[in-house]
Design a protein around this nucleic acid. Structure first.
Lengths: 153, 153
DNA sequence: CGAAATTTGTTGTCCACGTCAACAATATCG
DNA sequence: CGATATTGTTGACGTGGACAACAAATTTCG
């Protein structure tokens, strides 16, 4: 809304800018929605400083204790190299730990620390808040419809 | 699929990693879909080196010749500062131009060059290919359903 | 068995992108 | 007119994705 007030230099009384072919590009709208969702998520979880990516990592480790970085990487489609640094920060904050994997000397068995578990609990509560807000923004029917039809890829 | 072959170090015969609470987070699936779409788009348009963001800029300029950078920025939710550099590259490549705006000395009237128009024509054809592939991947019904219910934000 | 190939975690590098602050030129408002 | 706002621009910072290269460990297979 900051610019709709002025901007009279165009044709005459043409208020809105046309999206043109973008209206037929699903990717454009998926992107816009994704950005909105992430911004809202980040805002709501700013008090505990957990990003969407960090949240997904914590959730998957909690649901699969002892899994390896390669497995986690493949599950979340986060590059192995990127995951290394992501886990480094979580470990620095005392939320996760890499234990030696019994049997395979290359692997690390990932686990949440006690702190990690408690942070995850709070994160889940805030994420649920975010999800509720999203549901309200979209409308319950549309929300359910999207959730049901989006689990692909 | 590259890792499911090995990875026997976990419990015993537990093939898949659990997503846990992520299954109830719409944002997670929106993100995954968006990443898939962008990668496919980038791949299909790699021959003319047009990114999703560049494509959206070209499309909107073509649909609204003479609009200002601020209007374009607000329309596509691209930061003004970021847009400056984006347009700089497109101008370097001879695809867009910034004409002086009649009346307002601060604004630039954005236009496609002749080359820009021809590149956009090819880009639209490739984008249509991408869109067709996406439709096939999702299934026609699901595709339409998502497109119809995604124009929000 | 032992050499070759593969997997895993890691580091380094490069580029795209979002964000924010600051600024000059211009326009608008009071 | 002076104060304020808008527009385009530059600079700087941090994050993220993508690749290449590597060492250690494991698996494959002749």
């Amino acid at each position: 809304m900051p610019l709709r007030k002025s901007a009279p230099a165009r044709r005459a009384s043409e208020p809105a800018i046309e999206l043109g072919d973008l209206n037929e590009r699903l990717g454009y709208f998926v992107r816009r929605l994704q950005v909105w969702i992430f911004q809202d998520f980040i805002r709501l979880l700013s008090s505990i400083e957990i990003s969407p990516a960090q949240f997904s990592v914590l959730v998957v480790i909690a649901a699969n204790p002892g899994l390896s970085q390669a497995e986690l990487s493949a599950t979340l489609a986060i590059e192995r190299a990127r995951l290394v640094r992501l886990l480094h920060r979580l470990e620095q904050r005392g939320l996760t730990q890499r234990l030696p994997s019994a049997g395979d000397g290359r692997r690390h068995a990932l686990q949440l620390t006690r702190d990690g578990q408690s942070v995850l609990t709070r994160a889940k509560a805030l994420a649920a808040q975010h999800e509720a807000g999203l549901k309200q923004k979209l409308g319950a029917e549309r929300y359910k419809l999207l959730l049901d039809n989006m689990r692909i890829v």
